[in-house]
Design a protein around this nucleic acid. Structure first.
Lengths: 243, 243
DNA sequence: CGCCAACTTGATAACATTCAATGTAGGTGG
DNA sequence: CCACCTACATTGAATGTTATCAAGTTGGCG
C-alpha cells in the first residue's frame, strides 16, 4: 500500500533527486524497450513534475507510485484527466509543450527520456513505435469512457465506475480484486469525476450503507458486492439499485 | 451550407451507394496519402455507418459532410464523443471493434480503407505513419479539452466553448470566422455538451439576448462579440459576464 | 497532547433537468 | 394552394440533484 502522507521534504523538491542511471531499470520492470533511453528520477508525494504549457523536453514512464494529471480553469476549477500508475507513459503527443499539469500523489520513481532521443530511436525501432501508438490509443479510449462518465452519469454512478476501474487495475497487477487501494485524496477523486469532495464522500457513505463497500481506511476499500457495483457503474437500472 | 433536412431515401440506406473507385478522390482533396488505399462511398443524412462493438474491418476518412460519434448507456442516455468533418479520420485505434456508434448528420462522402491494407502500407510509408499518429494525438487532445468542459464548465460556458470551437473550424477551412454553421440538431449539441436540449436552447437564447450572438437560422449563427464569447468559453469571470 | 489536513455529515441554495405547452419550418397530400 | 403533419426548437413552471456553506470528526505527526 502507498504511504500517502509522506511529507514534502524540503531538501527534495522539484525533481532534483536522481537515482542510478539507465540500466538499473531492469530490476524494476524486467526488460523494457524504454529502459536504455533514459534515467531514473524519484519524487516525494505532493510535488509538481511540470505545468501545463511547459516546454516538453522529456517524456516519462512511471515505474512506481501514482501521478495526477490535470488542467485548471482561470478561476481555479480543476479537472483531473488521469491518474498515472506504474507502466504508464506521460507527455506523449506531438506538441512542444505539456498539455496538463502533473503532481505526484504518492512517492514516485520515473524513467525520464529525452524526447529527441526517443524520436531517433523510433525511426528504427518498430516495436517501440507500436508500443507508443498503443499507449496513445489506450489513453484515447480511456478519455472517451471518461467523457461518458462526466457527461451522462450520476454522482453515485461516477464513484462506482471509479472504484470498479481501480479494482480492475489492481487485478491486472496481480492483486486481490476485492481490496482496492485509493492513494489519492477525496478532492483528487472529486476533480477526476467532476464532482465536489462532499458529493464523493456522500457516495462512498451511501455505497457503504448499502453494504456494497466496506471502508477500512480512507484509502483502502473492500468490494462486497461486485455485481451490484458493476451494475451501478454501467448506469443500468439506477433507480432500482440506488433506491 | 449543409442541407440538414435531406430525406432518408429508402433506396439508399446503410452505405450501399458507391462512387467511382480510388483515384477520383484527388479531385476532392488534392493529393492525399490515403487516397489510393480506399474507395469513396456516400451516405444520406441521419444514417448509421456502424455501431459500437461492430467488427472494425475498415477505417474511414471524411471527405465531405459531418458525422456524429457517440456512446449509449443501457437506459438510452447518450454521449456524443465527437463531430467529424472533412479531413477527419474515423475508426482509429488498435481495437478489432469500433469504440462508438457513428451516424451521419448531413449527407456525407467517405473514403473507406480496409484496415489490413492500411497496416501493410504503414510498414513502409513513414509519412502516413506520422499522419496517423498526429490524427490520434489530435483526437486525444480534443478529448482532454472536452473532459474539462464536461467536468467543470457551466451550461453557458459549454455552449460558448462549442460555438467558439465550431467558429475556429470554419476559419481553418477558410470560411468567415463570424458566421458559424451548426449542421447538427440541438439534441446532438446537448448530447455532446452533457446537457439537455432545453438547456442548450436557453443558453443560445441568453447569448442572443446579450447581443453576443445573432441567430439567423437554427443552424447558422453570427458571432457579434468574439472576445466576450471567448471569455465565457474560457471560464473567465463568469459571474461578471453572465450576470 | 494538540495541531493540522483530510474526511464526514448536515442545512440551504443554485443550476440544470424534467414535464408541459407553444411555436416554427418543411414536406405531403387532399 | 392550403391544411395538416411531423420534427425540431423554444419558453415556462416545478422538481431534484449536486454545489455551497457550515459544523464537526478523525487520524497522523510534531
Amino acid at each position: 500500500m502507498y504511504s500517502v502522507t509522506a511529507k514534502n521534504s524540503p531538501e527534495l523538491h522539484d525533481g532534483q533527486p536522481i537515482y542510478g542511471p539507465a540500466d538499473s531499470v531492469a530490476s524494476l520492470s524486467g526488460k523494457d524497450a524504454f529502459a536504455n533511453l533514459g534515467n531514473l528520477i524519484a519524487f516525494e508525494a505532493k510535488q509538481s513534475l511540470f505545468w501545463e504549457g511547459d516546454a516538453a523536453e522529456y517524456i516519462y514512464k512511471v515505474m512506481r507510485g501514482v501521478i495526477c494529471l490535470y488542467k485548471l480553469l482561470p478561476d481555479g476549477r480543476r479537472q483531473v484527466a488521469r491518474f498515472c500508475c506504474a507502466g504508464d507513459l506521460l507527455g506523449l503527443g506531438q506538441r512542444a509543450t505539456f498539455q496538463y499539469t502533473a503532481d505526484t500523489v504518492t512517492p514516485v520513481t520515473l524513467l525520464r527520456i529525452r524526447r529527441a532521443d526517443l524520436e531517433v530511436e523510433l525511426e528504427s525501432n518498430t516495436c517501440l513505435r507500436n508500443e507508443l501508438l498503443a499507449a496513445v490509443s489506450d489513453e484515447l479510449r480511456a478519455a472517451q469512457d471518461q467523457l461518458v462518465l462526466l457527461g451522462r452519469k450520476s454522482a453515485i454512478e461516477r464513484v462506482a465506475s471509479f472504484i470498479e476501474a481501480m479494482a480492475e487495475q489492481t487485478l491486472r497487477r496481480g492483486g486481490d480484486a476485492r481490496t482496492v487501494d485509493l492513494p489519492m485524496t477525496r478532492v483528487d477523486i472529486a476533480d477526476y469525476l467532476g464532482l465536489t469532495h462532499e458529493t464523493v464522500c456522500r457516495a462512498f457513505s451511501q455505497l457503504k450503507a448499502q453494504r456494497i463497500l466496506d471502508i477500512h481506511d480512507h484509502h483502502v476499500v473492500e468490494i462486497r458486492q461486485r455485481d451490484t457495483l458493476a451494475d451501478i457503474a454501467a448506469g443500468d437500472s439506477a433507480e432500482r439499485l440506488c433506491a
